[in-house]
Design a protein around this nucleic acid. Structure first.
Length: 289
DNA sequence: ATCAGAGCCTGCCAGC
DNA sequence: TGCTGGCAGGCTCTGA
């Protein structure tokens, strides 16, 4: 489902209702989507009832990863990676009426807060995503250091510096490099193509041939594409919804992704589909260089 | 260092 | 109608 704009929209749609709410019950329907790391004692408990008893202190996003933090300096952290088809949804709980398990619902948290009683449900048909409980914020942030600079929040200047630093000597193609979450975090197949299209850079081009000015252009394009997608509520191609079931409209603004065989909106040439780094890539061979 | 390919899963769609 | 193959927004491992 999601690249970082969709995860950011999901985060925002959860934030108000989850803040300060308390986890009063947890049901794990499918244990193999869940892992608890770093717990000397209580690992078993966290795997059976992750975050039980927690008051939610915050929701963070970095790249495509979402973290739900228990309040307090030593609070537990639940890291959510949605993979291709994962999602979280929030439903009010009506007294006396049980919520049936959704297809592919793997974990359900029952929360009590200012918004009343709510069910937070993790749903993921393909199960490419996972849930990990960390003992505390520090161990979570240590793990998160694998990720590069965040494409939505980083300044274009910092992003350009990071791109140049990590990639200037790389033999990889630009497309492969943008999909690497260790450089800039948050781009997936859609927004990588969109950012390269806007920057007029050929996805097949080797990183080593890219100059300083072009890294700056690319950094601006990345930020712009991601931020516009957040404003539009994310891209809903088939199944993405925020926590309240609201679809996004960013797909209407796509200029490259999904437009193979159609005319380039800049120059009119036919957009081409190629396979780069194992992923379908759409590009205009006449105006991306 | 980098790439292709395979694998992890399920759902959907086009073509036969 | 029903089957088959191909494809999908992610990520990780293997072997070359």
């Amino acid at each position: 489902m999601p690249e970082s704009p969709e995860v950011e929209c999901l985060r925002r749609s959860l934030e108000r209702d989850l803040m300060s709410a308390r986890v009063v019950a947890v049901r794990v329907f499918r244990g193999d989507v869940l892992r608890a790391v770093g717990f000397d004692r209580g690992r078993d408990r966290e795997q059976r009832r992750p975050l039980l008893g927690a008051s939610i202190g915050g929701l963070e996003r970095h790249g495509k990863e979402l973290a739900i933090l228990e309040a307090g300096p030593d609070g537990r952290v639940l890291r959510v990676r949605l993979g291709m088809t994962g999602g979280l949804r929030l439903d009010p709980i009506v007294p006396g009426r049980a919520l049936a398990r959704l297809p592919h619902e793997h974990v359900r948290w029952t929360l009590e807060g200012a918004s009343g009683r709510l069910a937070l449900r993790h749903v993921d048909p393909r199960r490419f995503g996972d849930l990990v409980v960390f003992t505390d914020p520090e161990s979570y942030r240590h793990d998160r250091a694998r990720l590069g600079i965040d494409g939505i929040t980083a300044s274009p200047r910092a992003m350009a510096t990071r791109l140049g630093r990590d990639l200037a000597r790389s033999r990889r193609s630009l497309k492969a490099a943008l999909l690497d979450q260790g450089v800039v975090a948050g781009l997936g197949n859609i927004y990588a193509d969109e950012a390269l299209f806007r920057a007029r850079l050929d996805p097949q081009r080797g990183c080593r041939t890219v100059g300083t000015g072009e890294w700056q252009t690319l950094a601006r394009s990345i930020r712009e594409v991601l931020r516009q997608a957040v404003k539009a509520g994310g891209s809903t191609l088939r199944d993405y919804r925020d926590a309240r079931g609201v679809a996004g409209s960013a797909q209407r603004a796509h200029q490259a992704y999904g437009r193979a065989g159609m005319p380039c909106l800049r120059c009119g040439a036919t957009l081409q589909s190629t396979l780069i780094a194992g992923r379908t890539t759409i590009r205009c061979s006449s105006c991306q260089h």
